[in-house]
Design a protein around this nucleic acid. Structure first.
Lengths: 226, 226
DNA sequence: ATATTATCGATTATCGATAATTTCTCACAC
DNA sequence: GTGTGAGAAATTATCGATAATCGATAATAT
């Protein structure tokens, strides 16, 4: 019954996902890409209708998202998408600057040809991506590809959380200013340094990459009214 | 049931907690204090019976705990308490060393008399605490008291996650070696430095505090077989 | 005898309905 | 005009029951 090794015809290689997880994944996409706007309340029965399921898995999905702080949860008052806060963006940026350079340095030490292929595949995905959700997903894939070889799963997990937090602000910047397209070249450059084993150079380059990106976001936030 | 800060009955100052949250809190305590042992499977119907509720809130609680990585979740295979892993302890220690010194330095800058009272109250709780869960709770309260003034809620949140991860290993050490009682004096000393505004000294002191504690844990793990 | 399939019991995942709680509305008193 | 409280409507939280799924074991074929 279980497909086993056959991965050809679109069958699942990874463990099945429950309805709750699928719903959480879709809502996460919608929140990160601002399809669900900051401040918007999420009503359980609406979501249940949208996915044609009962409320139980919806509630589980919402609790999952709440623990990621992608929605705010108040007992008996439902959940809503949190507003964008300059302070949150600034603190997230600070933490990313504190954690990601070390991660990329450690990853450079272990970087192998498989990792390189993964990263290049992610860059290819970035080029193909034409809408915001696809672009975000490709970006995520690239950073996972270059961070995973560090062999620090917990750090990676935390960085993923931080980057996920950051994504909503990144999207905001994309919508309100024009800073989108520089990162692709920067990704290529960074990957080159990592493949060449240039640990310190890669660390410095990434730090600048993150700094530039977060500065642009903070600037966009300062200009526009949130 | 829970002694301590019980206010006049009927009136709740803080927002009511749902059954799911109460169950999550209790299970969290049980896991952190190793009442639920590493490797132990948690069956939904048993938990539901234990708290006299249906399975729905239990599932929500478990999903919450899974997102904190206090339990592992596999679709259709239930949850269990994860085993203790030396690598996890080591990486958690590294991250704590990377984040907590900065946090305590920033907190020292803003440290006021109210914060001092909170910290001293937590120390008093530590002295009174006679069992492991109470001691863990008091420890948590102290660190929150000295970290909160930094005004970095996200960093604090992440550090809380890391410390929570660490707690299971700390308990392991307490059970397998004798390193328990030094931290009280160290807490007093650290608090003195913070009240005196000695930012750099506080940072260094905390770093040593964390380093000593994590070293002891890693040593205990290396000696005993996990 | 071994490998493969069918079945059973146990457990998780989901559903539909009900209870509990909050929010809204609006009449009413001041 | 404004505050207030009762009741209605809307929404969340929980329940009890059912469906789906897994692991183990028994049955069958080769």
């Amino acid at each position: 019954m279980t497909p086993g090794v056959t991965e050809t015809d679109g069958l699942r290689t990874e463990p099945r996902r429950s309805i709750a997880e699928q719903i959480a994944a879709q809502l996460r996409k919608d929140i990160l890409s601002a399809v669900l706007a900051p401040g918007e309340p999420l009503r359980q029965d609406h979501i249940a209708q949208r996915f044609n399921v009962s409320q139980a898995p919806v509630r589980e999905a919402l609790r999952q998202l709440a623990s990621e702080e992608l929605v705010t949860y108040q007992v008996n008052c439902g959940v809503r998408v949190p507003l964008l806060e300059k302070a949150e963006a600034a603190e997230t940026a600070r933490l990313r600057l504190q954690l990601e350079p070390d991660l990329v340095a450690a990853a450079t030490r272990n970087f192998g040809p498989t990792d390189r292929r993964r990263a290049e595949a992610a860059i290819a995905l970035t080029i193909q991506a034409n809408d915001v959700p696809a672009r975000l997903e490709a970006d995520e894939a690239f950073h996972n590809a270059i961070y995973s070889p560090a062999g620090r799963p917990i750090t990676l997990h935390i960085v993923q959380q931080l980057r996920q937090r950051y994504v909503r602000y990144l999207g905001f910047m994309w919508r309100h200013s024009r800073h989108a397209e520089t990162s692709l070249d920067e990704h290529r450059e960074l990957l080159g340094l990592m493949c060449g084993g240039q640990m310190q150079a890669a660390r410095r380059y990434l730090k600048e990459h993150v700094r530039a990106s977060t500065n642009a976001v903070l600037e966009a936030l300062a200009n526009q009214q949130t």
